[in-house]
Design a protein around this nucleic acid. Structure first.
Length: 876
RNA sequence: GGGCGCAUAGCUCAGCGGGAGAGCACUCGGCUUACACCCGAGCGGUCGCAGGUUCGAAUCCUGCUGCGCCCA
């Protein structure tokens, strides 16, 4: 072995410090125009529209995961030569934003009504200019390669035009209508909500049974919302229910009010539930509304829009939650309370924005008849135009779109797209398209309400590309390639975008693939929540571990269809990986790793060279397949394993001896080091763009990895013999290390050793490597072997005699051999059991039987060998 | 109430018909000339329970138990 050459320095700093360089790198990429898409390009398109975050939002772990996924997908496609458009933007988040600004006004002692509609909306725009869009800067920090020149906002002029266009078109197609129905009403936000903006939870309440009527005609009903009895207009029973048959058609007196209400028979009453009789409040319950419709009952609204009782009487002016016990108390005083069950667990709807208990309320609203739209949205997935990943979630999608209720789209807000409908003095209703003049003159007024935010964000995949205009962007980049989001947003995003995209684009689906990732949880798999105090902040991770480590952690946890647990240790591990890559690259560069010199012909290469090149080839194929299948966790694991366990732990170590040889061998090694590193950096770049960019520029001297080519497997057949010999080298080294550790030899201490059987095992060329990695030195004149070990390899057994210059720890050696013996005996027993079963040898495939025979023979030989070793050990 | 999913090493998760795996944690030994954010070695599992199918089951089927999610 020659002297170790002094290592040349590189231009890389000794440690990877992400915080120092990330912002500058990112700005460089933006300035270079790498992320700006060209609609006139000849390259095949690859498009992702960012599910627009709320203008009020800031980056949380869920976003960070989704952005990592989208950035990885787009960066890979860009390297593969696609014309990539990743389009960013935000939605105006009607309720959330209006709440935010109203809170701000409240601090000044004002309400929005003090300002008036026009001034209030101006104020919201001011708010947006000053505070909105924090998340856009956070996207830069995480490294999102989005096309900032195409950034959009749902309230932009162009997108507003799209909204008005589609509204008009749907209205003309009679798919938008106005109707008075029971809707979900948030008394705090004072607006209607759609079904999916209501979250149900099992809450404790009280089930009160109330007796209506007297004597023979008495009938008992139960309710958890006693205050609604003020609005009862009937009692309903099942038509076949013998208990109540005599009462159907009669009237009972409604307590507290003195009103007489009918007893009606209705098929939808469940006679098994409770007393089998239900109170009917058509203005405050969806089921009761339906009963009311069937029996032509009046609807009496007993609350105002803030949940305060309006029914005249002692309860007027009380909030619904004050009125509830007050009504019960009054009923009790009249002796009408038959039973009270408390606590009583039942499902209660809450506003998804503010958590206020939703009040079902009779209200005149605008609706979308979703039936034809939802059927088209289902069909696009059914016939494979759009694929959902993972496919298991398609079922959930179908369940939703196939059973979707009509969609309430009007919101009683000021911030949003105002409904383009004018009402005339003689009950005229006119829907106005974007290029039409609204009717003017005495008595004409525009509908005061705005549209659900999802109405505009449902148009996002088409409106951001310029629709309804036939733009070059729309022609080039629609349908989009992938929509990525959490599975919890399936109904919000995917369903609505599918419905509108298909409708607007005459049946052309808005995306080819839908990738649904899991939700982020804490280290124990618990949901993150402020109240639990287990929320992890991606910005904190970006500061402390860097963008690459944050991204790698998230991508590595992204197994399809399942949630991911996260903890700081995960991020620290990824940071360590980046550091490892950094140091390995520095080492390779110090040793002259290069891509400028081609890798020599196979015949000129060592086993180690061929082995690592073959493994790199396999890695490229594996990573490609995993990317195509959205298998982010697995591709990260594959890259991690290759980089750390193969490239660093073995190839770099083997390369040390090859470089020490000098001459052509060293030059060839430098080429292999460089080419494999180049491949790894390219493959890692979509997930960890920053560290790979710095290293790759240093390795290649080229402009940027962002626009480098994606690697391809060479297609050369793998050298199985080289692999078998490297396996042998690894086993030899590992066994010697194990023996040394068992014997308590210090890792750094060199041990004189004599190897025999190396040539027969085919490892003559690898003696220097074994000596180096197992810390062996050549036997000197005084060589006195005190221990020996036999290591069976594929092509022969190598015997290693070691001079431990002292006594051997016989107990440790016996323990080690005994353990090996136990393993071999277990193996033998298992194999014999199988081979002794004629059904196995008859029925199992021949290759399986042959494999078991080989294993049996190997185990038997091992047992013989180890038993001899144990017998030869000195006593004690 | 209806539907779906999950139960594998201390923790988080891969594996989904023929030799129980990874990361982290833990134990032991090391500043071995890229890296202590490291290196080397190791410990650790009747694969939830009970049946069934099969030559063979962590892997397929049925039931049970526990947990989670979605919808009503």
């Amino acid at each position: 072995m020659t002297d170790t050459p002094t290592l040349p320095s590189t231009d890389l700093p000794p440690a990877w410090e992400p915080a120092a360089v990330e912002a500058e790198l990112y700005q460089g990429w933006v300035d270079a125009g790498y992320f700006t898409a060209d609609a006139s390009s000849d390259k095949p398109p690859f498009t992702i529209v960012l599910p627009p975050p709320n203008v009020t939002g800031s980056l949380h772990m869920g976003h960070a995961l989704n952005h990592t996924v989208m950035d990885a997908l787009t960066r890979r496609r860009r390297m593969q030569g696609y014309e990539v458009l990743w389009l960013p933007g935000m939605d105006h988040a009607g309720i959330a934003t209006q709440n935010m600004v109203e809170r701000q006004l409240a601090g000044e002692g004002l309400s929005r009504h003090d300002l008036g509609r026009e001034k209030f909306v101006e104020r919201v725009w001011d708010w947006k200019a000053e505070y909105g869009g924090k998340i856009l800067d956070q996207m830069r920090r995480i490294g999102d390669g989005v096309d900032w020149s195409r950034e959009r906002f749902t309230m932009d002029e162009g997108l507003s035009r799209a909204v008005q266009t589609v509204f008009k078109r749907l209205y003309d197609d009679q798919l938008i209508y106005r109707a008075e129905r029971i809707i979900n009403w948030c008394p705090r936000c004072r607006t209607a909500l759609s079904d999916i903006e209501v979250e149900h939870s099992e809450d404790e309440g009280e089930l009160v049974s109330i007796r209506y009527g007297e004597g023979e005609n008495a009938i008992v009903v139960a309710t958890t919302r006693a205050e609604t009895m003020l609005g009862d207009t009937a009692v309903a029973v099942h038509p076949d229910d013998e208990r109540y048959r005599h009462l159907v058609g009669t009237e009972v007196v409604l307590p507290l009010t003195g009103r007489r209400i009918p007893v009606v028979a209705d098929e939808h009453v469940d006679p098994e539930f409770g007393t089998g009789a239900v109170k009917v409040t058509p203005a405050h319950d969806p089921n009761d509304f339906e009963i009311g419709r069937r029996h032509d009952l009046p609807s009496i609204t007993v609350m105002d829009t803030t949940g305060v009782i309006t029914a005249s009487g002692p309860f007027e002016g009380l909030d619904r939650f004050e009125a509830r016990p007050a009504v019960v108390a009054a009923l009790r005083e009249e002796g009408r309370i038959v039973a009270e069950k408390r606590p009583y667990l039942h499902s209660v709807g809450h506003c998804s924005r503010c958590d206020t208990v939703v009040e079902p309320r009779l209200s005149l609203q605008w609706w979308v008849n979703v039936e034809p739209l939802a059927r088209a949205a289902g069909d696009a997935v059914r016939d494979g135009r759009t694929q959902i990943h993972p496919p298991e979630l398609a079922k959930r999608y179908f369940d939703w779109v196939d059973n979707m209720h009509d969609w309430t789209i009007s919101r009683q807000l000021w911030w949003g797209h105002r409904i383009p409908v004018w009402y005339g003095p003689n009950d005229e209703v006119v829907c106005v398209g974007p290029d039409e003049e609204p009717p003017s003159g005495e008595g004409w007024t525009q509908d005061p309400d705005v549209l659900d935010t999802w109405f505009s964000s449902g148009l996002w995949p088409v409106s951001t590309l310029g629709w309804p205009a036939r733009t070059a962007d729309l022609a080039k980049f629609y349908p989009t390639s992938v929509l990525s989001t959490g599975y919890d947003i399936l109904f919000f995003w995917v369903a609505r975008m599918m419905m509108f995209g298909l409708y607007a684009m005459d049946g052309k689906q808005p995306f080819d693939h839908v990738y649904l990732h899991g939700l982020i949880r804490d280290a124990q798999g618990k949901k993150m929540s402020k109240s639990r105090g287990n929320v992890l902040d991606p910005l904190d991770w970006l500061d402390r571990f860097g963008a690459d480590a944050t991204r790698f952690t998230l991508a590595r946890g992204a197994n399809p269809g399942s949630d991911m647990a996260l903890a700081e240790e995960w991020a620290a591990g990824s940071r360590n990986f980046c550091t490892k890559l950094w140091n390995a690259s520095r080492f390779a560069l110090m040793n002259g790793a290069t891509i400028d010199r081609p890798v020599p012909d196979r015949a000129e290469l060592t086993d180690a060279d061929r082995w690592i090149l073959d493994r790199a080839d396999a890695l490229v194929s594996e990573v490609d397949g995993l990317f195509e299948g959205f298998q982010f966790a697995k591709l990260c694991d594959a890259l991690y394993h290759f980089t750390w366990d193969l490239y660093c732990d073995w190839y770099l170590e083997l390369a040390k001896t090859q470089i020490a040889e000098g001459g052509a061998r060293a030059d060839a090694t430098r080429a292999v080091l460089g080419h494999v590193l180049d491949t790894v950096l390219r493959l890692l770049h979509p997930v960890t763009p920053f560290v790979t960019e710095v290293l790759w520029k240093s390795l290649t001297g080229r402009e940027s990895l962002v626009v480098a080519d994606w690697p391809r497997a060479s297609g050369a057949p793998a050298d199985d013999e080289a692999e078998r010999r490297i396996d042998g080298v690894q086993k030899l080294i590992t066994e010697i290390r194990r023996f040394r550790a068992d014997q308590g030899v210090k890792p750094g201490q060199k041990v004189a050793a004599r190897l025999s059987g190396v040539a027969a095992a085919g490892l003559s060329a690898h003696q220097a490597a074994v000596a180096s990695l197992a810390r062996l030195e050549a036997p000197g004149e005084a060589f006195a072997p005190s221990a020996s070990l036999e290591i069976p390899l594929a092509d022969g057994t190598v015997t290693v005699e070691l001079d431990l210059s002292g006594t051997v720890d016989v107990a440790a050696e016996r323990k080690r051999l005994t353990k090996d013996l136990t393993v071999a005996e277990k193996e033998l027993a298992q194999c014999d059991a199988k081979l002794g079963n004629p059904k196995f040898t008859d029925k199992a495939p021949a290759d399986v039987v042959a494999k078991i025979r080989t294993r049996r023979d190997t185990a038997a030989a091992e047992i013989t060998r180890i038993q001899a070793r144990i017998a030869a050990l000195p006593a004690g």
